[in-house]
């Protein structure tokens, strides 16, 4: 599988480590009234879609960047690769 890194171009998936659901970026607010419930869901509940899925990948044998890879779990087709930094910033989670 080839992952088309937004900065570095096409790279072999062997250079990466997969972390799992990209929803891990959306860490709940610890001061919310229902923080315990939100963290329970954040830590333990995952969608397991048959089809398009967004995952966090870490470019360990490369520039050590975190990526959000949109991948079809049925075909392994990679349709989108973004820097996790940009995704987090777009969601207002990072300066």
């Amino acid at each position: 599988m080839i992952i088309n890194h937004p900065l570095l171009g096409p790279r072999d998936a062997a250079e990466f480590v997969v972390k799992g659901d990209a929803n891990l970026i959306n860490r709940p607010d610890w001061q919310a009234d229902d923080a315990a419930q939100q963290f329970y869901e954040y830590a333990y509940l995952r969608d397991n879609p048959a089809g398009e899925h967004r995952e966090l990948w870490y470019h360990e044998q490369g520039d050590r960047s975190w990526l959000v890879v949109t991948r079809n779990t049925l075909t392994h087709e990679v349709t989108k690769v973004e820097l996790a930094r940009d995704v987090a910033r777009a969601a207002g989670r990072s300066a």
Partner: peptide
């Protein structure tokens, strides 16, 4: 005498 290598964002 100086060779700069761009390895990644800000690296």
């Amino acid at each position: 005498k100086v060779h700069l290598l761009g390895l990644g964002a800000d690296q």
